[in-house]
Computed example of a mutant assay.
Amino acid sequence: MKHEAVTQASAILIVLLVIFAGLAAAGWLRPSGTVQTTTVTAQASSSTGLQTIRVGSLPVTDEIPFFVAIEYGIFAKYGLQVQITSCAGSGPCLEGLESNNFDAVLIAPPAVISFAAQTGNYLHFLTSGKLQGNVGSRSGDGPSFLVRSGVTVSSPTDLQGKTILTNAIGGPNYVVPLYLLEKAGVSNKTVTWKEVRFPNMPLALTSGQADAASMAQPFAGAMLANKTAYSIDNLFGEHGSFVNALGNPAMVSSWWTTPQKYQQNPDLYNRFFGALSDGLAYAYALPDFAYSAANKYTKTPVNVLSQIAFTQEFFQPYNSSAPQVRTMLQNWVTIMSYTGYLNKQVNIDTFLG
């Protein structure tokens, strides 16, 4: 298996191409970094008698219910004042939680599972974040496995010898396509993986640095819309890649804290869950407000958000006692074990205790 990092020269090329193409002005690219140093306090922070909860946030659409709960003043109704620090990914969020800089974080399940396997330290599940598939009347599914226009891939075996972009080796957008390829008989030894942050993927792909990419929204949607790439999710099943790999529904992200923090103050986290659940309900009832709130924190254009939120992803307020959560986490363990990326057993119930 071959892993490559983007070189400094390539990074400079990407920046120049971004300027040339005008994508930055269109709002597609956002600043990168580990953890932004500016901490934003939610609207209710000027009120007195509110308990502060420090949140490590990913500025992505996975957090739409959270953004709505902030902007609609729902956290204040639950007696909470939210302090937000933006993380560059699950890794920095996890580090911030472990170093006691955060009280709650949104993290992709593979990061939590790998952390437990490697260290023996388990996090405590609070509630689900972004889901794909459908539950009752709510549904959302969309493409994430893209191939650059001009490159022909009509079957999984056509990816042999190709270079595929992922945002992080070991992350969900690596584990999912890796599993699908292995299941289709394509050995991981026959492809090259290259790590590129999601915002830089469109330019990295169109400039010929790779043939395919496992890409998050809104970047995948932008490439499909301007026909610079096409989806191959259908080569692995009738759904998007995450549902094809993980079953229906698939949990793409979720909210976590440490067991120690939860045991010390369960009421704090029960109110946090209540505010998120109400934020979710308001998001579905007031989609235009939800798009506006998400735009404020993600900088994604509203017209793009309206094509993604509630159509290519959906939300359901599962807590740790919901049986669906255990199943969804177990599905992650299954595909991580199948690919060889998880070689130690983990106890799912410990996440939910």
Rank of each mutant, 00 (worst) to 15 (best):
H3S: 10
V6I: 15
V6K: 09
A9L: 14
L16A: 13
L16F: 08
F20T: 02
L23H: 11
A24D: 03
G27E: 13
G27K: 11
G33E: 00
V35E: 05
T37Q: 15
S45C: 12
V55Q: 07
L58M: 15
L58G: 14
L58R: 10
L58V: 13
P59N: 13
P59W: 09
T61P: 05
E63D: 15
P65S: 11
A69S: 04
I70L: 14
Y72P: 01
Y78T: 02
L80W: 03
L80Q: 02
V82G: 06
T85V: 12
S86G: 00
G89Y: 01
G91V: 15
C93P: 07
C93L: 05
L94P: 06
E95N: 09
E95Q: 07
L97G: 10
L97A: 05
S99F: 04
S99Q: 09
F102D: 03
D103R: 10
D103W: 02
V112P: 00
T119S: 13
T119Y: 07
G120Y: 13
G120T: 12
F125E: 02
F125N: 01
T127H: 07
S128N: 11
S128P: 08
S128E: 06
L131K: 07
Q132K: 14
N134F: 14
V135R: 02
G136C: 06
S137D: 11
S137L: 09
R138G: 10
S139V: 09
R148G: 11
R148C: 08
G150S: 11
S154M: 10
T157C: 01
Q160K: 07
K162V: 09
G170S: 10
G171D: 11
P172W: 00
V175H: 06
Y179C: 09
A184S: 15
V186A: 01
S187E: 00
N188I: 02
T192C: 03
W193C: 04
R197I: 07
F198M: 12
F198Y: 12
P199H: 05
L203R: 02
A204E: 01
A204I: 01
L205N: 07
L205P: 06
D211I: 07
A220I: 04
A220V: 03
A225E: 13
K227N: 15
A229I: 05
I232D: 00
L235C: 13
L235R: 06
H239D: 15
V243A: 12
N244A: 13
N248V: 07
N248P: 04
N248Q: 04
W256A: 06
W256Q: 05
T257N: 02
T258W: 10
P259W: 09
K261M: 04
Q263E: 03
Y269M: 10
A275L: 14
A275I: 06
L276G: 11
L276S: 10
A285L: 12
L286K: 03
Y291R: 13
A294S: 15
Y297F: 15
T298Y: 08
P301C: 04
L305D: 10
L305F: 11
P317G: 12
S320A: 15
S321D: 14
S321E: 15
A322V: 07
P323V: 05
T327G: 05
Q330S: 12
W332G: 03
W332K: 08
W332N: 05
V333Q: 01
G340V: 00
Y341G: 13
Q345R: 01
Q345P: 00
V346D: 06
V346S: 03
V346H: 06
I348Q: 01
F351R: 04
L352R: 00
G353E: 02
